[in-house]
Design a protein around this nucleic acid. Structure first.
Length: 901
RNA sequence: GGACCCAUGGCUCAGCGGUUAGAGCACUCGGUUCACAUCCGAGGGGUCGCUGGUUCGAAUCCAGCUGGGUCCACCA
């Protein structure tokens, strides 16, 4: 292993400048192999996590930064420090349609051509399919390093020796095998069904990729004449539609079977306007009686609801719109028109024929393709489908029986809700960039040819021997390959060592917005292929907003973390994103949070600078055995023992929080400990000018120990600044860990605490605060010492006299004292300040008032059933509090009497 | 239409059954520049959305309501 880079070990900035060290440090971590799990040793349980593969052509956004640089790297680093062989596997997704569009745009720029119109966009550049795929691959070499560099900038401790891309040749073989097995196991079928078609992208898409937007359209009321003479008084059949151009493909009119206006007429026939086709009136409960006239035109070829109705009633499926959005020859007089022109043309015709009853505006939800907001054009097409309910069943069971736990827990309900109502998944996509469908069709006998697993592409039909076989031109939905990520990247279907060792994984961390797209599908396919769920825990994080808006490209408020890292460093950004956010909750990011992160990083850096300076001044302090337990070390001061005990408390607390996946709380608690306790109290007391003579070495030893612990505790969230400091700290000699870097060092385990000391020290801090308050109110100058006498129940404070003196700027004595006291718990504090009887009286009255309120609370509480019903320790605590409050009130009353006379 | 989440100081959020409800930012006042282009110290500010209920005890559990958000769904 190379030595740590000098740029890092020699860095001595007064403020921490992330730019000076981050890349050097990361390169060293990576080339040293710290991120690659060590060879397998018996009995070790690895920690395994897969990177939620970003789109190869994308840039990281703040959500990624939170996910990858926040939660995931935090977990990976923490588990690695716990001694678990840790595999966090990186990669990227070929991103099908998205990447194809990106590259098409690049090619358009390059070749100076302009893309327009829907059909086979890539072909417009004049490229054959093979040529276009060649271009795609060329661009992949441009995009892959980009996205991987951004992951490195975040500090992600990914094992780059195992990086994968979903279109890698080995993963292409994996996907092919998976498809073939799914087919053989009966999970795949090919069917002519209605699907969402995008006129812009030129491909079908699944329900999940469709969303709804509100829009106002014209609702046309159209009369369908009776096909046969009807008795007088028979009502006219009038339907309401926003898509009159599809009238040409109507094959029925549906009414609700319980609708008394219509149900007597079920079975009668009407004529479809313009084409004059006879169609039946049918009864179907899906019809909304309250909408329009209660009569629905049924167009199985161009509407999903109608398609289902058609299935139930055995209706013919007619198509009058093609994949370019143009009316087909079947549309007769309207053939060749686009859908909007056709709409107005048919309205004119209907009006001419006297069949248009009226038109009125209607605001309704229309389905659009989530990628491009193009209005859905439902079409009936032959597609490959995955039969989902049988695959969903064991995945539901896995969550029910706890094999996989979803955090936060309420997301399990959402998971069940969706999984229990899951619908089949159309996986064919009519684009070029993606995994080819390993199916061939015989053009002579129309046989479907799916090859055996390891067989080459078929060249002849096994049924009729014809050599005229052609591969399915479609590719698979991107999510079809990402669903395999947890096992495909480990070598499946081959039985590799990695697969045996690292499957199933430990945690899957990702945003709740892709629970269905990705997490659920990984679980289903993992169970199907491996017989086991791919991870034991699913940790879902929320969305990162900025300015209270969800970030999206269309809103133009996508903020790049790259610039923030360059300006403030990855540590600051990571900390700012994770701090104070709980699992699954959306969070609001702001400059203020980033600023806090930056300052915390700098605080850590400067505590380090102080500690290092102390070590350099007294190198001999670290010689020999170090006993820094709160109990040991005869020359330790009370302050040393206190911070040592608090450090152990912090170890316990921070460990617990990470174990319980409470990362936001971990970050907050860390800052609280480091800043308020280590920096503001202990470092102040460790300064040579404040130390009792002869205790300087003890301070240096304590500082070295505590700071080493602090660095370890902070490393998972702030890896760069902590390792920089650790490398410098460790140059000063003895450490209890042979690790060359914090990355591969050990997370501390908690040692003994001294609770009694912590409590008393806490009291001392309260007393100090009160003295400072009195000084502040009296306008005493900072440099001036005041005389302070402590009485009442002040004995526990005797060991801290020096500390109180030092931090409060006081000369401390016990007993008497002339001035009127202020009371903290049951300690009377007399600060020698200029006399002002009126002000003293007012102050004491005020204090007494507050003390009496508290006393009253205590008395009421203990006078109630609480005393008999609450658990003993709780009651005991309340009694102790009561005693303290009685003492405090007593002191204040006495004092007031003295003044009052 | 169904489901889920959220409602706590000026802002962003923690806390989710037990003393006087916390943090960061913002604010007020006072210092310092001897680890910290800063930092330190002190302080003000909350009837924890509303109404009931359970409990010795509720911001925390239950029910209903109001307001915000998200997801799912076949509104032509």
């Amino acid at each position: 292993m190379a030595k740590a880079p000098q740029a890092v070990t020699q860095y001595r900035g007064k403020n921490f400048d992330a730019r000076a060290i981050e890349t050097f440090l990361y390169d060293w971590w990576e080339t040293s192999g710290f991120f690659t799990p060590a060879e397998e040793r018996p009995g070790e349980k690895p920690f395994v996590m897969m990177l939620p593969l970003p789109n190869v052509t994308g840039d990281l956004h703040l959500g990624h930064a939170l996910s990858f640089g926040g939660y995931e790297d935090l977990m990976a680093r923490w588990h690695r420090m716990r001694g678990e062989p840790t595999l966090w596997l990186p990669g990227s997704d070929h991103a099908g349609i998205i990447a194809q569009i990106v590259v098409e745009k690049e090619l358009a720029k390059e070749f100076g051509t302009r893309k327009k119109g829907p059909e086979a966009p890539a072909a417009q550049e004049g490229l054959t399919r093979d040529q276009f795929l060649g271009e795609m691959w060329r661009w992949m070499e441009h995009y892959k390093p980009r996205i991987y560099k951004q992951l490195r900038m975040l500090g992600c401790s990914l094992d780059w020796t195992r990086v994968h891309f979903t279109m890698d040749p080995d993963l292409q073989r994996t996907v092919r095998t998976h498809f073939i097995r799914l087919y053989k196991n009966g999970h795949l079928y090919r069917a002519n069904r209605i699907v969402h078609w995008c006129l812009t992208c030129g491909t079908t898409y699944s329900d999940l990729e469709s969303k709804h937007i509100e829009r106002t359209d014209q609702l046309s009321y159209v009369r369908y004449p009776w096909a046969d003479p009807m008795p007088p008084g028979t009502p006219d059949v009038i339907v309401a539609t926003t898509r009159p151009e599809t009238i040409l493909a109507d094959t029925a009119v549906a009414v609700h079977p319980d609708d008394e206006r219509w149900n007597a007429l079920i079975g009668k026939e009407v004529l479809v306007p313009v084409v004059e086709r006879r169609v039946k009136i049918i009864g179907d409960a899906v019809v909304d009686r309250a909408f329009g006239t209660g009569a629905l035109k049924v167009t199985p070829g161009h509407d999903a609801t109608d398609f289902d109705i058609g299935q139930r009633h055995g209706l013919q499926v007619l198509s009058v719109i093609d994949t370019r959005g143009l009316m087909t020859p079947a549309a007769g007089p309207l053939a060749g028109l686009d859908r909007d022109t056709a709409r107005s043309a048919i309205v004119d015709r209907l009006r001419g024929a006297g069949l248009l009853v009226k038109q009125e505006p209607i605001t309704h939800a229309v389905g659009v393709h989530e990628r491009c907001d193009t209005v859905d054009e439902p079409l009936v097409m032959k597609q490959w489908w995955v039969r989902m309910p049988p695959l969903a069943k064991p995945a539901i069971e896995a969550v029910r029986n706890g094999s996989t736990r979803i955090i936060p827990g309420y997301q399990e309900k959402i998971f069940f809700e969706w999984m229990e109502n899951i619908r089949d998944w159309p996986v064919s996509r009519q684009i070029w960039w993606g995994h080819p469908i390993p199916v061939w069709y015989c053009r002579d006998c129309e046989a479907i040819v799916v090859p055996e697993e390891n067989a080459p592409d078929p060249t002849a039909c096994p049924v009729c021997r014809s050599t005229d076989v052609r591969q399915d031109p479609d590719v698979l939905d991107t999510w079809f390959s990402s669903a395999l990520w947890p096992h495909s990247t480990l070598g499946w279907p081959a039985r590799t060592k990695d697969l045996a060792r690292f499957y199933p994984g430990t945690v899957l961390e990702t945003g709740y917005d892709i629970l269905f797209y990705w997490v659920a599908r990984m679980m289903m396919m993992g169970i199907e292929n491996m017989g086991a769920v791919p991870f034991g825990v699913v940790y879902l994080h929320g969305l990162v907003r900025m300015g209270n808006q969800k970030m999206s490209k269309s809103k133009g408020n996508v903020v790049s973390p790259v610039g923030m890292i360059e300006e403030h460093g990855a540590d600051a950004l990571r900390y700012a994103l994770v701090n104070g956010v709980s699992a699954g909750a959306d969070s609001e990011f702001s400059e203020g949070k980033l600023e806090n992160g930056r300052r915390f990083v700098n605080k850590l850096w400067n505590i380090g600078r102080f500690a290092l300076a102390q070590l350099e001044a007294r190198p001999e302090a670290l010689a020999g055995a170090i006993d820094v337990s709160p109990a040991g070390g005869a020359d330790l001061t009370e302050a040393d023992r206190w911070i040592l005990s608090r450090t152990e408390a912090a170890v316990l607390e921070l460990t617990r929080l990470i174990e319980q996946y409470q990362f936001g709380e971990y970050a907050t608690a860390l800052q609280q400990f480091v800043w308020s306790e280590v920096a503001d109290v202990y470092v102040e007391l460790a300064k040579p000018q404040r130390r009792p003579a002869g205790s300087e070495d003890a301070a240096v030893r304590t500082l070295a120990y505590v700071f080493d612990r602090v660095l370890r505790l902070a490393h998972p969230i702030m890896p760069f600044v902590t390792d920089t400091l650790a490398l410098q700290l460790w140059e000063h000699g003895p450490k209890d860990d042979p690790a060359p870097s914090l990355v591969v060092s050990r997370w501390p385990s908690a040692g003994a605490r001294d609770r009694r000391l912590e409590d008393r020290f806490g009291l001392a801090i309260e007393v100090i605060r009160r003295i400072r308050d009195r000084r502040h109110d009296a306008g005493v100058e900072a440099g001036t010492k005041v005389r302070v006498a402590l009485a009442g129940d002040a004995d526990p404070l005797r060991p801290f006299a020096g500390i109180i003196a030092s931090l409060a700027g006081a000369e401390v004595s016990f007993g008497g004292g002339a001035e009127t006291p202020t009371v903290v718990r049951s300690v009377e504090i007399r600060v020698d300040l200029p006399k002002d009887a009126a002000a003293d009286r007012a102050r004491i009255e005020h204090e007494l008032d507050a003390a009496l309120t508290l006393l009253e609370h205590s008395r009421t509480l203990l006078g109630s059933d609480f005393a008999t019903r609450a658990p003993a320790p709780v009651v005991e605590k309340a009694r102790a509090t009561l005693a303290e409050r009685e003492a405090a009130v007593g002191s204040l009353k006495t004092e007031l009497e003295k003044l009052g006379t």
